[in-house]
Amino acid sequence: MTRRSPEPVDVVKTRRDSALLALKARVPYAEYLGVSFERRGDELTTTMPFRADLLGNPILPALHGGAIAAFLEVTAQVALSWSVIWPIFEQEGAIETLPALPKTIDITVDYLRSGLPRDTYARAKVTRAGRRFASVQVEAWQDNHARPIAMATGHFLMQNNG
């Protein structure tokens, strides 16, 4: 019996990164907000670079609460999709078709601090991954990770669960 040698790292990376790009391309609204994704293994961090049209209050100035909510929701949804795709990668499989995006049932956003005119980062954690429903927690921060500007909990409906 011969053991299969591991795939070259760049092949693995390219496959994973291109799946992430394909996932992002499915969500034009993420593009509109200027959101980018950074991957470390299975961990995703999203960035929403500062832009003047993300401001709510231009006098303070502070980011629009709606832009922050939208960023958190995009992060939660993509992270949840990613958590569905990831086990396929772990079996060294290629993704032929991306699974349908989960649908948001509800999301509750806590605004903890005013969003400064800076880049905003977010990370999500899938706290329950059921066949039909999933719960996701997501937090957004700016300069200091220990001082999040907003946190959200969302529930999602999983699609095409066979």
Binding site: V27, P28, G66, A69, A70, F71, E73, Q77, L101
Partner: peptide, 17 residues
């Protein structure tokens, strides 16, 4: 503002905003 290219439905985030 589309949330899913396959359906053309507006993203929930835009509705939130």
């Amino acid at each position: 503002l589309i949330g899913d290219l396959e359906t053309g439905v507006i993203h929930g985030g835009a509705v939130s905003a």
